[in-house]
Design a protein around this nucleic acid. Structure first.
Length: 736
DNA sequence: AGCACGCCGACT
DNA sequence: GTCGGCGTGCTC
C-alpha cells in the first residue's frame, strides 16, 4: 500500500545547490501545496522554505525524512509565474534554488510572517478619548499614563513603539478600549483609495503621437520595444499613455526606474496623470510597507507598481504591461548575492507572462541595441524635444598646451563668462569628488596610500582629511610628509571641491553650488542644493554623476565636461560605453528651455574616435561603431561571459581557490568555452582583502550554461572555498 | 550560511 | 585549571 503522505520538495535558503524533501506536517488540515511557504527543521535550526513540488517518493530513505513544522500559507503564495521565475533565476544565475526563491520575497515573508495587506497594529484615541483628560481617570494610573501618551500622538502609536517604551501596555489599553476611549486599528500602509479623476494629458507632439500609436498596437502578447528618446523628448508621456491604455483594460502595470530616477516629481506625475493610487517600492520603505505593497499587488488591490531593481519580483494578479525606464542604467544590476539584472529579468518575466514590455533610454545599452538589430526587439524613436527646444550644440575643447586653472581651460572660462552674462546657468561635470585625487610630497615624491587598498587616498580639503574612495577609510590630513618630514604637500589633480574653490574665487560665493556625495550626505541636503540650483540663486553647478541624470535644470545653457580623458584610458570593456552615455546624459541637461544650449568637452585627445563620432553622429553613431568593434573583438553582446570572483584576507587564498575551480571547470567545460585566469583583480587589494578572478568566455551561451551547471555545485564544495569569499557573476557588467 | 563539535593558547 | 580561537562536518 503506497504511503498516503505526499512528499514536499522544498527550496530552503542556504548555499546548498539542491532542494530538500519533507513529510507534510502532523496537522493534516494543512498538507502544503506548491508555492506555499513551510516552516521546516533544518539542521539544528528552523527555516522558511517554499514548496517547489509535491512528489510521491523521495530519493532519501523514509526514516531520514523529517516532518515540516507548519505550512505557513494555506494557498500558494507565489503564483505559477513567479514559481517559474524562481527556477529560472536559480538556473540562469547558477545560484542555489533556495537563495533564488528567497530573493522573490520581501523580508517579512522571508521570515515567515503572514502575507497581509494590513499595516502595523496601532492604537489611537477615539473622539471620546480626545475629550477625556488623563487626570480624570482615577485608580488606574497605567490607563491614565497611556491615555496621556496617546494624547501626545494624535495620529496614533504603533504597538512596536509602545512595546519599546511602555512594557505591559496591553491590559490598560484594552481597558481604555472597553471604555470607548481608545481604539486599535491598522496603520494604513497603502496609498489612499481612488484619487481625483485622472489629470489631463498634454497634447502630444506628432512624434509622440506616432510612438504612442505604434506602441498601443503592440499592447497584446509578449513583445519587447525599445523607446529611444533624446533627453526631453517626453518618454514619460509615452509611458503614461501606454499605462493608461493597459489600466483601461483592467490590467496592472509594473514600472522599473533606476535608483536615482525614483523622484517625488515622477511619483506625483504618474499619480496625477493616471488618477489612481500607486505602490512605490524604494529603499526607504519599512519592511512592513514593502510587505503591504507586495501583497496588495498580488491580490490585485493596487494597479500600478513603481519601483527600483527588486520591484521586478512583485507578483501581479492581472499583469498587463512592464516598463523599464533608463534601461541602460547600471543600478539595475544587483552586485551581490543573486547577481541578477532587473532589465533582463523583466524581459524574461514579460515573456513568461505573455505581456508586452517597453524599455526606454536616451542612451540604450549595446545589448539592447543588438537585440533591436537582430529584430528580437522593436524600436520607436523620439528624436525631437517635446518642448521644441533644440539639442545643445556640442563642441570639443582641445586643452593641449593650454594653461589650466583648477582643470579649467581659458576658453571654457570665457564661455562660462559669456553664458553667465547672458543670464544662463552653467553645469560643470567632473566625476571625481574631493579636492585632489593625489597628495604628493614635494621633497620625496611620496604619496598617501590607503593601508587597506591598492589605491591612493583622495585629499578632502573641507574636512582636512585623506579618504579612500574604495573602502571608505579616512585619516586626518598630515601637516608634514610621514616619510621624510617634508613640509610641502602638493595637491595634484582636480576634484569637485577644488573646482568649487576656483570658481567661487572667480565668480563669488553664492554663485556656485556643488552637488556630490559629500555635499548631499545630510538628510534633505540634496533637495536644498537642488533648490539653490533650480531657483537660479546659484548660477554655476558643479557635480559628479549624481547630477548627470534625473534632475531637471531648465536654466542651464552651458554644460562643460571638465575631463573626458580619464574615461578614455580605462581598461574596462564597458568604460567607453559608460563614458559616452554619461556625456550624452549630462549634455541633455542643457537647453531644455527655449534658450539654445551649448556643451563643451575638454580633452587632450580631440582626435579620439569615440569623441569624434559622438560629436558628429551622436550616441547612435557611437553605438553603431562600438557594436562593430565588439563584434570584431568577439566581446559581449556577441559573446557570453561569466566571472568568478574570490577574495580573502590571506594572500594567495583567492588564487588557490580559483585554480581549483579552474581544474573543475576544465574537466567539465564544453568545447567552445575558454577559461581565462585566475588573474588578480584590477585593484588586487581592497578593504584589506586580496582579490582574484576567473573569466569564462564563449560564443555559445548554451555551452557556457552547460559548463556552469555541471561545475558550480562541485566548485561550491571545494575545500579551498572555505578560506575565501567567492561569487559567480553571469553576464558581469564590470571586471573589478 | 548557520551551528556544533573538537582540539590547542593566554587568562580569571 | 577554564574561556575561546577557527578547522571541518552537516543540513531532507
Amino acid at each position: 500500500m503506497p504511503n498516503a503522505d505526499p512528499i514536499l520538495r522544498v527550496a530552503i535558503p542556504s548555499p546548498l545547490y539542491r532542494s530538500f524533501d519533507y513529510l507534510p506536517p502532523a496537522d493534516r488540515a494543512t498538507p502544503g501545496t506548491v508555492g506555499a511557504r513551510v516552516l521546516v527543521p533544518f539542521g539544528r535550526t528552523q527555516k522558511v522554505g517554499v514548496v517547489l513540488e509535491t512528489a510521491s517518493s523521495s530519493e532519501l530513505p523514509p526514516e531520514r525524512l523529517k516532518r515540516a513544522v507548519t505550512v505557513i500559507d494555506r494557498e500558494p503564495l507565489l503564483p505559477p509565474d513567479l514559481m517559474r521565475l524562481g527556477r529560472w533565476l536559480a538556473d540562469y544565475y547558477k545560484q542555489p534554488v533556495g537563495e533564488a526563491f528567497a530573493a522573490l520575497f520581501p523580508t517579512l515573508l522571508r521570515q515567515g510572517q503572514a502575507a497581509t495587506v494590513r499595516g502595523e497594529p496601532m492604537w489611537r484615541l477615539t473622539e471620546a478619548g480626545r475629550r477625556t483628560r488623563p487626570e480624570t481617570i482615577k485608580g488606574a494610573s497605567r490607563q491614565a499614563q497611556l491615555l496621556a501618551v496617546l494624547h501626545q500622538q494624535p495620529k496614533g502609536v504603533t504597538q512596536a513603539q509602545l512595546g519599546s517604551t511602555h512594557s505591559g501596555w496591553r491590559a490598560p489599553l484594552d481597558a481604555l478600549a472597553r471604555k470607548g476611549l481608545a481604539v486599535r486599528e491598522y496603520k494604513p500602509c497603502l496609498p489612499e483609495g481612488p484619487l481625483a479623476s485622472p489629470g489631463p494629458a498634454p497634447e502630444p507632439t506628432d512624434e509622440q503621437a506616432r510612438a504612442i500609436g505604434t506602441l498601443r498596437e503592440r499592447l497584446k502578447g509578449f513583445n519587447v520595444t525599445l523607446v529611444e528618446g533624446v533627453t526631453g523628448s517626453g518618454k514619460t508621456e509615452v509611458y503614461l499613455a501606454l499605462m493608461e491604455k493597459a489600466l483601461g483594460a483592467g490590467r496592472q502595470v509594473l514600472m522599473l526606474v533606476p535608483e536615482i530616477g525614483l523622484t517625488p516629481q515622477l511619483i506625483e506625475r504618474v499619480q496625477k496623470r493616471l488618477g489612481r493610487p500607486i505602490a512605490v517600492l524604494h529603499s526607504a520603505l519599512t519592511d512592513r510597507e514593502r510587505l503591504c505593497a507586495w501583497s496588495a499587488a498580488r491580490e490585485g488591490q493596487i494597479e500600478i507598481v513603481l519601483g527600483t531593481r527588486s520591484a521586478v519580483f512583485t507578483p501581479l494578479a492581472r499583469p498587463g504591461l512592464l516598463l523599464v525606464d533608463e534601461e541602460h542604467d547600471g543600478s539595475y544590476k544587483q552586485q551581490d548575492g543573486l547577481r541578477y539584472h532587473a532589465r533582463d529579468v523583466a524581459v524574461l518575466r514579460a515573456s513568461q507572462l505573455d505581456i508586452p514590455i517597453v524599455l526606454g533610454s536616451a542612451t540604450p545599452s549595446l545589448e539592447t541595441l543588438r537585440n533591436v538589430e537582430t529584430g528580437r526587439y522593436g524600436r520607436v524613436v523620439l528624436s525631437e524635444r517635446a518642448t521644441g527646444a533644440s539639442m545643445p550644440r556640442l563642441g570639443l575643447l582641445d586643452v593641449r598646451h593650454q594653461r589650466l586653472e583648477a582643470g579649467l581651460s581659458g576658453p571654457l572660462l570665457t564661455h562660462i563668462d559669456d553664458h553667465l552674462q547672458r543670464g544662463g546657468q552653467v553645469l560643470l561635470f567632473l566625476n571625481r569628488r574631493g579636492y585632489s585625487p593625489v597628495l604628493l610630497c614635494h621633497d620625496c615624491g611620496g604619496t598617501a596610500h590607503c593601508p587597506r587598498c591598492d589605491a591612493l587616498m583622495t585629499f578632502h580639503r573641507g574636512s582636512e582629511t585623506l579618504r579612500c574612495h574604495h573602502c571608505g577609510g579616512e585619516r586626518p590630513l598630515p601637516s608634514r610628509c610621514p616619510d621624510c618630514g617634508g613640509g610641502e604637500l602638493v595637491a595634484v589633480g582636480q576634484g569637485t571641491e577644488r573646482l568649487e574653490e576656483a570658481l567661487t574665487e572667480r565668480f563669488g560665493v553664492n554663485t556656485v553650488v556643488r552637488i556630490d556625495r559629500d555635499t548631499t550626505r545630510r538628510k534633505g541636503a540634496l533637495e536644498q542644493q537642488l533648490d539653490r540650483a533650480r531657483s537660479g540663486q546659484a548660477r554655476i553647478l558643479i557635480g559628479t554623476q549624481m547630477l548627470a541624470k534625473g534632475h531637471d535644470f531648465p536654466g542651464i545653457t552651458l554644460v562643460g565636461i571638465v575631463d573626458a580623458d580619464s574615461g578614455l584610458f580605462a581598461v574596462d570593456l564597458r568604460a567607453t560605453e559608460h563614458l559616452a552615455q554619461q556625456i550624452v546624459q549630462v549634455i541633455g541637461r542643457a537647453g531644455r528651455a527655449e534658450r539654445p544650449g551649448e556643451a563643451l568637452i575638454q580633452t587632450h585627445l580631440p582626435d579620439h574616435p569615440l569623441l569624434r563620432t559622438l560629436l558628429n553622429e551622436g550616441y547612435d553613431g557611437f553605438a553603431r561603431d562600438a557594436l562593430i568593434e565588439r563584434r570584431e573583438a568577439g566581446m559581449p553582446p556577441f559573446a557570453s561571459q561569466a566571472l568568478f570572483r574570490a577574495e580573502a584576507v590571506k594572500r594567495g587564498a583567492p588564487e588557490a581557490f580559483l585554480e581549483a575551480a579552474r581544474a573543475v571547470l576544465q574537466t567539465h567545460a564544453a568545447t567552445n568555452v575558454s577559461i581565462i585566469g585566475p588573474i588578480p583583480a584590477p585593484m588586487e587589494r581592497r578593504a584589506g582583502r586580496y582579490r582574484h578572478q576567473l573569466i569564462l568566455h564563449t560564443d555559445s551561451r548554451r555551452e557556457l550554461h552547460e559548463t556552469l551547471t555541471r561545475s558550480v555545485p562541485l566548485i561550491a564544495e571545494l575545500r579551498e572555498s572555505r578560506s575565501v569569499r567567492w561569487s559567480l557573476d553571469v553576464d558581469p557588467m564590470e571586471l573589478y
